Amino acid sequence: MTSLASCLFCKIVKGEIPSMKLLETDTIYAFMDIGPIAKGHCLVIPKYHAAKLSDLPDDQMNDILPACKQLAKATGAEDYNILQNNGRAAHQIVDHVHFHVIPKPAGAGDKAGLVVGWPTQTELSKEDITKSFEEMKSRL
C-alpha cells in the first residue's frame, strides 16, 4: 500500500506534480488521465487519502458523483463508463481512491474506450445467491 507521503495522487492535489486540472472543490480534484484509453479520459479523486472506497469517510464523497456527471457531459460523448477499482485483484494500480470517466466514442464498438467482458457466474444457484444476500444484509 502506498503511504500518504509517496502517493502520486496526493502529490498532484498538492501541486507537487503537474496535472491538467479540470475541476476542483474542497473535497475533490479532477484532471486528465496521462495514459488515456479514449479521448477525454479523466479522473476524479478525493483530496482525502484513502486507498479504497470503503476507507473513504462518507463526508468526503459528496462531490464525487456530481463531478463525474459534469465531466461525462463535458466530454461530449453520448456513451461513457464511470469506473472505480479497489485492490490489485480488481485492477487498481494507484492506492488512492479514484474514478475514471471514460468516453466511448460513437461507432467505436469495442475498438476504443473501455473494453469490458462481463462473465456471468452461471454456477451460482438461487440458493447461493440467497445465501450471499442474507450475509450481506446482516452486515448492513
Score class of each variant (00 low, 15 high):
Met1Val: 15
Ala5Ile: 10
Ser6Arg: 07
Ser6Pro: 08
Cys7Val: 03
Cys7Gly: 05
Leu8Ile: 12
Phe9Asp: 00
Phe9Asn: 00
Lys11Trp: 05
Glu16Phe: 08
Leu22Met: 11
Leu22Tyr: 06
Leu22Val: 08
Leu23Asn: 06
Glu24His: 01
Glu24Leu: 04
Asp26Trp: 01
Thr27Ile: 05
Tyr29Ala: 00
Tyr29Gly: 00
Phe31Lys: 08
Met32Cys: 12
Asp33Ile: 02
Ile37Cys: 01
Gly40Leu: 04
His41Met: 07
Cys42Asp: 03
Leu43Tyr: 02
Val44Met: 07
Pro46Thr: 03
Lys47Gly: 06
Tyr48Glu: 15
Ala50Gly: 07
Ala51Cys: 12
Lys52Ala: 06
Lys52Thr: 13
Asp59Met: 00
Gln60His: 08
Met61Arg: 09
Met61Asn: 09
Ile64Met: 05
Ile64Thr: 02
Ile64Ser: 09
Leu65Phe: 05
Ala67Arg: 01
Cys68Asn: 01
Lys69Tyr: 12
Ala72Tyr: 06
Ala74Met: 09
Gly76Pro: 03
Gly76Ile: 04
Gly76Leu: 08
Glu78Cys: 09
Asp79Phe: 13
Asp79Cys: 12
Leu83Pro: 03
Asn86Ala: 02
Arg88Lys: 11
Ala90Leu: 01
Ile93Ser: 11
Val94Asp: 02
Val97Glu: 01
His98Trp: 02
Phe99Glu: 00
His100Phe: 07
Ile102Arg: 02
Pro105Arg: 12
Ala108Arg: 02
Asp110Tyr: 15
Asp110Lys: 11
Asp110Asn: 15
Lys111Leu: 11
Ala112Gly: 06
Leu114Ser: 04
Val115Lys: 12
Val116Ile: 14
Val116His: 01
Gly117Glu: 15
Gly117Tyr: 11
Thr120Lys: 10
Thr122Leu: 13
Glu123Asp: 13
Glu123Gly: 14
Ser125Ile: 02
Lys126Tyr: 14
Glu127Trp: 14
Asp128Trp: 02
Asp128Phe: 08
Thr130Cys: 14
Glu134Pro: 01
Ser138Met: 10
Leu140His: 05
Leu140Pro: 06
